[in-house]
Amino acid sequence: MSKQFSYNNFIYEKESSSEKGGVKIINAIPYPEKLHKFYPINSFSVDALVNGYFYASHTFELNDYLDSSPFLWHALKPLDFEFYKEFLGKDVPRDELIKFYEADASNVNLCKGYISKYWEIISNIFGIISLTANENSLLMWPHYTQEKGFQITFNASELEVSINDKIGQGQCFGVFPMNYTEFLNPIDISEFDSMHIPFFYATNVKSDKWKYEDEWRFLIGKPMMGVPNSKMGLNTEMDFITSPKNRYTFYDNRLVDHITLGINFFTAQDFNLEWLNEKHFKVSPKNSITNWNYKSYKKLLFYIHENLKDKIYHSGTKYELDKKNNHFLIRTKERLEIKKVGWDTYIFTRTEDIIKIF
């Protein structure tokens, strides 16, 4: 049985000495200096920042149906009975297990029942945290923030250490770059003596249509994280409900390097907005029936003022010249200063400290 699998210049190698039963994902992609997380503006994202955690998503909650899918597993020959015994032997009587094995491990079914059951159970004990090394993607700002949300930036190695320090009785694997590929080829689980490599492969491979995201991923293992079956189309199974907090994965939020607000974060629809002069503008969130995020804006601005006042940027745009002296637009971010002047009123100052991001 193989203890290593190569695909698309990635090598998946089981760590036999690891107490956690992990898999090394070997690749030539340089470890990033910074990692970023894009958020829309809502109560969930603001709470995650304020309390220093990421939500480790179930696969049904990912925005790509084929990402981390059980369809990325198949068996070209029947598995040994020991697979079934090790996985289900404690919960299923032996005679029932033998009957299930004989039907499922036939040349007709090729272990489809085993794959389905394995995925159903394991998805209750792992979750996915996605970050990006792409600081200013033209697509990610609108896709994940609608240009109104925010982005938080970390030193990658400090964040990885912090998550591992705070994981407690859980397990943290990663952070790994995604293996972007033209074709999503299923892995033959019958070639391996355990499901370690197939699991890490299935949660790491992704269509190259998503390559612009430059995603780096943590895999989080915890008991009883829940299975939101109702989020999957045409699935009539009941949700396996646990506390959503079981999927929270904490980090030291003092490690936030800086926060960048979307270009449409401050709008007259959601804020009382007044330009005092070319450099200074005053804002306070509007408490109106049309501003569903009033409390989130209020909470976020207070947190920024108290904890990130020297680490705040605002997205913008700027013209540059190409080699033929033609103008083209680029994205930028400008550092802001913040001063509290009322209960929920702030004055922001543009510093003209601008970072160009091509």
Rank of each mutant, 00 (worst) to 15 (best):
residue 333 K to M: 14
residue 306 E to D: 07
residue 358 F to K: 11
residue 230 S to Y: 03
residue 310 D to C: 07
residue 274 E to C: 14
residue 56 A to G: 08
residue 322 D to F: 03
residue 73 W to I: 01
residue 49 L to G: 14
residue 256 V to R: 15
residue 310 D to E: 13
residue 294 Y to W: 06
residue 25 I to S: 13
residue 274 E to A: 14
residue 126 F to R: 11
residue 102 E to P: 11
residue 226 G to H: 11
residue 189 I to W: 00
residue 196 H to Q: 00
residue 180 Y to K: 09
residue 102 E to Y: 12
residue 269 Q to T: 15
residue 133 A to M: 03
residue 265 F to Q: 02
residue 26 I to K: 14
residue 127 G to C: 02
residue 302 F to Q: 14
residue 351 T to Q: 12
residue 243 S to A: 11
residue 142 P to D: 02
residue 56 A to N: 01
residue 187 I to N: 01
residue 132 T to Y: 01
residue 263 I to R: 15
residue 193 D to E: 07
residue 52 G to Y: 10
residue 342 G to S: 15
residue 77 K to S: 02
residue 147 E to T: 05
residue 46 V to N: 13
residue 267 T to R: 11
residue 357 I to G: 00
residue 41 I to W: 11
residue 108 V to I: 13
residue 200 F to S: 05
residue 229 N to V: 06
residue 80 D to V: 04
residue 211 K to A: 06
residue 311 K to Y: 02
residue 227 V to F: 09
residue 206 K to P: 01
residue 208 D to A: 02
residue 201 Y to D: 06
residue 91 D to I: 15
residue 42 N to K: 10
residue 239 D to H: 07
residue 81 F to W: 10
residue 130 S to N: 11
residue 350 R to N: 15
residue 195 M to Y: 00
residue 319 Y to A: 13
residue 19 E to I: 04
residue 82 E to K: 10
residue 193 D to T: 08
residue 203 T to I: 05
residue 191 E to A: 13
residue 197 I to V: 08
residue 52 G to T: 12
residue 305 H to I: 04
residue 101 Y to P: 07
residue 256 V to I: 15
residue 56 A to S: 03
residue 145 T to D: 00
residue 265 F to T: 14
residue 267 T to D: 05
residue 200 F to R: 07
residue 39 Y to N: 12
residue 150 F to L: 13
residue 61 E to S: 04
residue 223 P to V: 07
residue 250 F to V: 01
residue 106 S to W: 01
residue 72 L to W: 06
residue 338 I to N: 13
residue 155 N to L: 08
residue 80 D to H: 10
residue 291 N to D: 12
residue 358 F to H: 06
residue 200 F to Y: 00
residue 291 N to K: 03
residue 210 W to T: 04
residue 153 T to W: 09
residue 38 F to K: 09
residue 190 S to V: 09
residue 92 V to Y: 06
residue 33 E to F: 05
residue 164 N to R: 07
